[in-house]
């Protein structure tokens, strides 16, 4: 009884979590390979992982993946600049003018969960079959999280910090730039990071739908050619790019916020 109630010694962690994560991924691919090779899964619907890996080199060399990647990335970056300026600006305005916040916050939040990508025909009419259709789709779809997170960051600034500013007799402009904005910056960063990821998803999606531009168009072309290993290889490439994109944003955020 006494032994059972006694605290157990802490278990020594011997396997790093990264190894566990990578092993699960390898195990998943191996089981898929097995299921496809044994005919449980139809190889004309899902190609075996070995074929997908084998077509990586071909897709990179023959399909100009890097050129397409740069195109998608530049669309994302332009959308990102627009998002930061308009999204952060919108959040600041909504925080400054309570009437605007009360009038718009609900529908901006609703917009965040709406499938805005379905509006692509409208954008196609307005901007034509150009990169601006993708940029504007990415921008509009990713705007709500940036606005909402900016608003949240500014509204949740601790009252005592605002009072410190007041006690030093700050002007409204000083109060904003020296206290509210820096205090809200961590939350604003979260909004921008979410926004950029939303923008990337929507940009690749619209490239696929209108068969124009970078990585999304590549997936469309390969699928239309019924080059299934190539299509899946391109999808893997997009996922890889998304992961790298996310990790880079996290690194930038940490570099800009050394105090956390």
């Amino acid at each position: 009884m006494t032994d059972a109630a006694a605290p157990r010694p802490a278990m020594r962690r011997t396997i790093p979590p990264q190894v566990v994560g990578l092993s699960s991924l390898v195990a998943f691919f191996l089981s898929m390979e097995l299921l496809i090779q044994t005919g449980v899964i139809n190889r004309f619907i899902v190609p075996p992982p070995s074929d997908i890996i084998g077509s990586f080199g071909r897709v990179i060399v023959e399909e100009n993946v890097f050129g397409r990647f740069l195109l998608t990335l530049s669309e994302c970056l332009i959308a990102g600049v627009l998002l930061t300026v308009v999204g952060v600006g919108g959040g600041v305005l909504m925080h400054r003018f309570k009437l605007l916040q009360q009038a718009c916050e609900t529908w901006v939040a609703a917009m965040a969960s709406a499938p805005i990508v379905l509006m692509y025909p409208l954008f196609l009419v307005i901007f034509g079959r150009s990169m601006w259709t993708m940029i504007m789709m990415g921008f509009v779809a990713a705007l709500p999280p940036v606005i909402l997170k900016t608003l949240e960051g500014l509204s949740s600034t601790r009252k005592v910090l605002v009072n410190v500013g007041r006690s030093f007799n700050l002007t409204p402009s000083q109060q904003f730039w020296k206290i509210l904005f820096p205090a809200a910056l961590p939350t604003i960063f979260v909004g921008i990071r979410l926004g950029l990821i939303f923008a990337l998803i929507n940009i690749v999606g619209v490239e696929f739908l209108i068969n124009f531009g970078g990585l999304g168009q590549l997936i469309n072309e390969l699928a239309e050619r019924y080059d299934l290993p190539g299509t899946y290889a391109a999808i893997c490439f997009v996922i890889l790019v998304s992961i790298l994109f996310f990790m880079t944003l996290e690194k930038i955020e940490r570099w800009l916020r050394p105090f956390d």
Partner: peptide, 10 residues
């Protein structure tokens, strides 16, 4: 102030 009031970003 009573509450912690330093600026964490400075």
């Amino acid at each position: 102030f009573q509450e912690e009031s330093t600026f964490p970003w400075r």
